[in-house]
Each structure stands twice: as C-alpha cells, then as structure tokens.
Amino acid sequence: MISLSGDIENAKGICQKKINSNDVTYGTSTLKRGFAHMLKNGVVMDVTSVEQAHIAEDAGAVAVMVLDKLPSDVRKIGGVARTASIKIINEIMDTVTIPVMAKCRIGHVYEARVLEKANVDMVDESEVLTPANENHHIWKWDFTTPFVNGCRSLSEALRRIEEGSSMIRTKGEPGTGNIVEAVRHINKVNYDLSMLKSIKNYGDESILIKLARDFQISYDILKKTAQLGRLPVVNFAAGGISTPADAGYLMSLGCDGIFVGSGIFKSSDAKERANAIVLAATFWDDINKVYEAQNLVDEKESMLGIDIQELELKMQDRGKN
C-alpha cells in the first residue's frame, strides 16, 4: 500500500482514456509515487552521453539522469546551466532499458513540458541548473510525468510534495565530491520528523497548526506526515557522493536510495566505481560487501573534492521557499 498524503485527486496531470471497453487512468499519485517506489534501494546515476548511460546500466543502476554537464563542470564553467539536449535524451532512451530522467530548471514550466513531451520517465526540478523562477516552483500536479525535488529539511520536502512532487532527495552540495551537506540534510529531515512525532504524541493540536504555518504547508499534510512518521514519498540521498563508503553511510542514515552526480564520471575509474557504488548501496547493511565495494576503487582515482567553506556558489540555496 502506498501513502497518498497530500494527494490531489482532480489534478490536471491525471487523464482518463477508454481502451476497448476498459477505463484506463494515467498520472495518479499512486502511479507517480509508485514509480519512485520501484527505484528503492537503488542508485540513479548522472550521465551526459550514451556511453556513460551504458556503463550505468551495466553496473546495475536503477535509472539514469541525463544532464548537459555534470554538476562539477557546471560549477567550473559557470554561466547558465539549462536542461540537456533532447537529441541526447532520445539517444539514451533508445539504448538503455532502465528509466531515463532529466533535469529542468527550478520553476521552468516549459523545460519540464518539453521533457514530458520527450517522454522521460521522471523530471528532476533541480538546483544544479540555474533557476528560472525565483518565487515559484513548478506546479507539478499539472503533469502526468512524476517529479523529483531536492530538500534540506522536512518543511522544504513537504512544500515540494504539496506542489506535486512524487519523490524527494537531499540537496546536498552538488559537484563537490563532499557529502557533508547531504548528511546534514538527511539528519535535519530525520530530526524534524522525530520532533513532529513527539508533538503529535503530546497531543496539542495548536502546536501542530503553528508548525504548519512555520513550514508554509497545509495542516492536513503535516498531520498526515505526523501519523505516518516518515515522508509520504520515497527519499533518496544526493549531493557529493563519490565512494562506495559514502553511499553505504547515507543509506545507513535512512535514505531509500542514492543519486550519484559527478562522483562516478569525474573519477578516473568510472566503470569500477559505478559497480562498486551500486554494490555498496544495495548491501549497505553488510559491512563485508561495502568493504568489497570500497576495495574495487582507488582513492587516487576519486574526483578531487571541494571544501564547503571554499565554495563561491551554494547550489542548495536555490529554490528554498
């Protein structure tokens, strides 16, 4: 059974059709959130080419995320980062059997529309790209295709879910090879959830109503989340993951799966590392397997990380409202 807290039943993204004598419905929350459920305990890999998509699929990735540039290159090159070329997205969709996702700019309804038209399996409304609308995220209930969004706290996650997001990931700090921010964000979500549960157990509804105001979300979704004791959608870790041990550690903090951005294809041992990170994420609760995975990679080949203090651009600050 799937949790539907915050669901909007008459959303525009839902469409009905009659095929022969059967009524068929597309784009419901069950279908969108259910898709994310099928990715659980898996690794989604950022790719920029068909070759990289092949490496990801062969390694056992559950999906690929198509970008024009890997996050660390976005950081290095600067300028405006936009959605990937449709041509490359199509080429990748024609060569791998696993789901294909792509990123659009925060608030950029038309980039998202174009990606939906291209038939990608999920859209990531991502802070890695340059935001297009600083005040509003996309109203994702209007889409049949599901969305994933980043968050740094429970309030941010629930705001995105109320806008129709079907999957949440930590923002972390993309393209740094540094997991400190992803760890901070998942810890914050977990801390917020335990606070929420104790408020619920305390039984004073007025505190919950005030919290909903602070969080800028409806009382309804907050209450349902409190009852559930967890996010109503699947929650992945993202931002800075570059080694098998990174993946294992974040899974152990309660993440449902892992997004790896620059970590794989900015290393010099991409193929081995892709295999190793999948192995560690899948069997994270078995230290022998994580050890085996970590042994498949060489730290000398890891991408060079960046200390968070030295960053000029903090991507996680984008689209926080």
Binding site: V24, Y26, T30, L31, M93, T97, P99, V100, N119
Partner: peptide, 15 residues
C-alpha cells in the same frame, strides 16, 4: 515483453 505499455507517462491504473 518489457516496458510493453510504454514509458512512465503511460503507466496506468485499470480495473
């Protein structure tokens, strides 16, 4: 046949 009904957009519910 894998992915017979199409990509995610064409995922569906039906009785």
């Amino acid at each position: 046949e894998r992915n017979y009904f199409g990509r995610q957009q064409y995922s569906f519910e039906s009785d």
